[in-house]
Structures are given as structure tokens and as C-alpha cells.
Design a protein around this nucleic acid. Structure first.
Lengths: 242, 242
DNA sequence: TTAGTAAGATGCAGATTGGATATAAGGCGT
DNA sequence: ACGCCTTATATCCAATCTGCATCTTACTAA
């Protein structure tokens, strides 16, 4: 390929065809005990009336992570979230207007951040995710409004959402992602609730507790949960293993 | 951001800044019982004399996967390999000439494909990978020539290589990637050798054999290894679980 | 005081794993 | 033909891990 040889030889780089690069954010949090994503209703064509992941174009002098952080800030009003790259979608017909390659990022929001984004006047709406497959089988997921009605998704965003769930499930029990959805102090039951919501399956309580404590990621704060009418649970804090 | 509003509103897309997108391939195989990558020595500036992953620019009308397959064909002369997207590198100063965002792909080559690529006059050279960390701790890796001398890597390709090893280790025992490095028929010992090379650690033989057979991915062919001066091993074939 | 609830602890059976050891099946030298 | 060497394959056992049931603890409400 001619352009390839030129590329390696360092000829005028401005001669090449360039394309448009975007980032799309899968903002995930918990809503009512189940996994939920924050979506925007599209006002304009194409896909007007459908629901889309918040996204934006990557500037020519902007690192990818910076673009993702910018979208997080501008579209969701957030500065704090676990952000990790998910996958890059580069099919030809993703967008009917033009070729757009999109780098999808997974953004995990704590309960507080999730509520903030919803209340911030950004237009974001929480859609609970209906995952009709068990474990890491994979397959399509459905986003549903509060009423339970499915929300039609724009572009290939259903595929991106499905991959986000798959990635989250896969990383859940060997990485720290589960803590990103929790406040700084949390009980073991809350942690288990997060895991169960993500996995879509109930977990065994003593086994879960044992495994988590044996990981060495939790440090007891000595504080107790307040406001319960029963035995208050110990509050833990996530501590990155050294 | 102005361009963002225009993007959503569907204004003239040609008005936006575009950037150059490339794919880079981490061609991995086994050489002399250890993990090895295929690299090209750069002839031109920048980084002349350093070693680089084979790559190429993504055409404006070319899907990402097609670009990766094209590089595999044109740069390595191969049509058969396990190809999977690895990560997208989008820092500003990856290439001193211009902003280039690169989607890295992991390509896993069977022993035959690896030898073919080396013999095909493509200029590719096998570099064994020296991974100085255990498990999935992560960290830099060193590419070494046959003599053992470290090969200086171009651009951010050392980082890409390191991520490839990390990904491979992580996926090894729950996915099928291990089979991509083997011929169609293989013995359990060969499979174990592959795993040990990738993990950089010895494995327990009976346990490994049990686990692999229990997975249900292996079907015995009834054929035996030939040419040994001892008991010949059963040849297995990988069969995707249905 | 007592009932109710959920946290946290304990005990146990079955499954999984690491590691040693025994047996099987080839070629090879005598 | 016969034993020997080497590696494949099978077995065994102990230690660990997991799922699950049950027990105990600590709090509120009545």
C-alpha cells in the first residue's frame, strides 16, 4: 500500500486520509439494586428519539483519556469516576453521516456520583440494564426506563453496553472495579449487593465474606453502620494491596 | 465545546479536525520454548534502527479489523491467525511527526505461521520476550535477539508489548487463546508447554491435564504422536464447547 | 424484658488442587 | 526376545477451597 510506505518513510503526513475519532462513555452505577446506565435522548438526526451514550469528538491535540474525562465533565458534570478504556469500535457504518471510529470508555460511578449526574441538569436518564444471559455468556442487553419500557438505542450503542457488562462481570472478582460503585465506607453486605447486581445472581454470604476478607483489600474502620434497627454492620474501606 | 454541539446536531462533518489512525500488530508465537514477538527494524527516522511492531494506517473506508488483517497479510504474509483487539493508544507524543492514534491488535501465530512469517522475506525478526514479573503483576518487558542482546523498541511499542503479555496471561486459562499457538493436533504436553511459556512458570502436570480435560475443549483424535523413542502421547484437537 | 432482624461466626461435606507415586507403551541396545 | 530407558497416563492422598446450614451476637421497637 502506497500510503503505508510513505508513512514509514516519513513523507508529508498531511497527505493522508484522516478520520474522525470519538469517545463514548458507558456510565454505570446502581439504581434500585440493579445495574443502570446513564443515557441521553438524541434530539437530532440520525437516530433522533433514540437513546445514546454520552460522547464527543477527540480533539487533534487531546489525549484519549483527556477526551473521556472531558465528556465525563461536560456531559455528566462529574470529575470523579473510575474510567477505563473498554474497546474501540471501527465499523464503517456506525454513523450514517460519516466514518467515525469510537473509543468506548467504561465509567463506574458511586451512588453519589450517579445521583449527582442525574440531578445536574445534564439531561441524562438512568436506564436499568436487563441482562438476559448468565455469567459471561455474552449477548445483547436491554436498557429499560423506570417504567420498564425498553429504550431503543442509537448507533451501535447496544453492542457497546453489552460489552461493558461483559467486561465488568469478567473483572469483578479479581480486580477492584466493584469498589468503584461504592462510597468510601461500606459494609460487606453492600459490597455483596454490588457484586450480585453486576453478576445478576445471588451469592453465598459466608463464602463471599471469607473471600473478600482474605483478599486483603478491606480494612475495617472500627466504625459501625448507623440507623439500623438490628445489629449494625462494620464499615470497611477499600485499601489497595501494597 | 462547539464542535461537539455541531457533531450532535449533524452539521457539516467535514468541518472537524481529523486525525490519523493506525493499527499495530503484536505478532506472538513460540520460539525455542519461550514467548516471542515478530518485529521490524526501522529504516527511516524517527527511531531509525529501533525495532517496531508491524503496523499501517487505517483507510478512510476500511474497518479496523480489515486494516489489521491487511497488515497481517502485507507485513507478515499471513492469512491465518487469531486476531483480537488489544488496546487503543492515544497519547499526544507517540509519534514525533504527527498525532497518530493506534489501535493495537494481538495476533497469535501457530508454530507454522510463525515460521512462515519469518521465512517470507518480510524482514520480520523473532525477538524472545523477557518478562521480569510474575503472574499478572505487570511491568515492562524486554525483547531480545537470538544472541540475548536487548532490542531497543520504537515509539511506545514496549508498552504495547507489555500489555499484550498481560492480556495473554490473563485470558490464558479461561479462554481459548492457548490453542491459537498450537497446530491443529497437539499433545497435552505441548499444550502445557504453551501455558508455561506464556505464564513464565512451571505447572503441575496431573492438575493441568485434569483441568484441561474437564473443560470439555479437547477431543481425542485417536492418533498418536509419531517419532518418539518412548510412549507416544495422544493427539488432541481443540473443539469449541457447544 | 422480649421479640424481631440482620450481622457475623462456626462447622461440615463435597469439590478442587498440588504433589508424589505407580503403571503403560513405545523405541533401543543387547 | 528381553530388559532398559523415557515419557505418557492413571491413581492416591492430603491440604485447601466452596457451598450451605446453623448458631451466636448486637441492635431497635414494643
Amino acid at each position: 500500500m502506497a500510503s503505508e510506505a510513505e508513512f514509514l518513510d516519513g513523507y508529508d503526513p498531511s497527505a493522508y486520509e484522516r478520520l474522525t475519532l470519538a469517545v463514548d462513555l458507558v456510565l454505570l452505577g446502581l439504581s434500585g439494586g440493579s445495574l443502570a446506565a446513564l443515557l441521553l435522548e438524541r434530539q437530532a438526526h440520525p437516530h433522533a428519539g433514540r437513546w445514546a451514550l454520552p460522547g464527543g469528538l477527540v480533539g487533534i491535540d487531546e489525549p484519549l483519556e483527556a477526551a473521556a474525562a472531558r465528556v465525563l465533565r461536560d456531559k455528566a458534570g462529574l470529575t470523579q469516576a473510575h474510567l477505563e478504556q473498554l474497546y474501540t469500535f471501527g465499523g464503517l457504518d456506525r454513523d450514517p453521516r460519516m466514518r467515525i471510529v469510537s473509543v468506548a470508555y467504561l465509567a463506574l460511578l458511586s451512588e453519589r456520583a450517579f445521583a449527582e449526574a442525574l440531578a445536574g441538569g445534564s439531561g441524562l436518564v438512568a436506564a436499568t440494564l436487563d441482562v438476559p444471559w448468565a455469567g459471561e455468556a455474552g449477548g445483547p442487553v436491554t436498557a429499560r426506563a423506570a417504567g420498564g419500557a425498553p429504550l431503543p438505542l442509537a448507533f451501535d450503542h447496544a453492542e457497546i453496553l453489552a460489552l461493558a457488562v461483559l467486561r465488568l462481570r469478567g473483572k469483578l472478582d479479581y480486580s477492584e472495579v466493584g469498589f468503584a460503585l461504592l462510597p468510601e465506607h461500606f459494609t460487606l453486605r453492600q459490597l455483596q449487593d454490588v457484586h450480585e447486581a453486576i453478576l445478576g445472581a445471588p451469592l453465598n454470604k459466608p463464602a463471599f465474606r471469607r473471600r473478600m476478607l482474605d483478599r486483603g483489600w478491606l480494612s475495617a474502620t472500627g466504625l459501625r453502620e448507623a440507623g439500623t434497627s438490628f445489629r449494625p454492620a462494620e464499615l470497611y474501606r477499600f485499601q489497595r494491596p501494597r
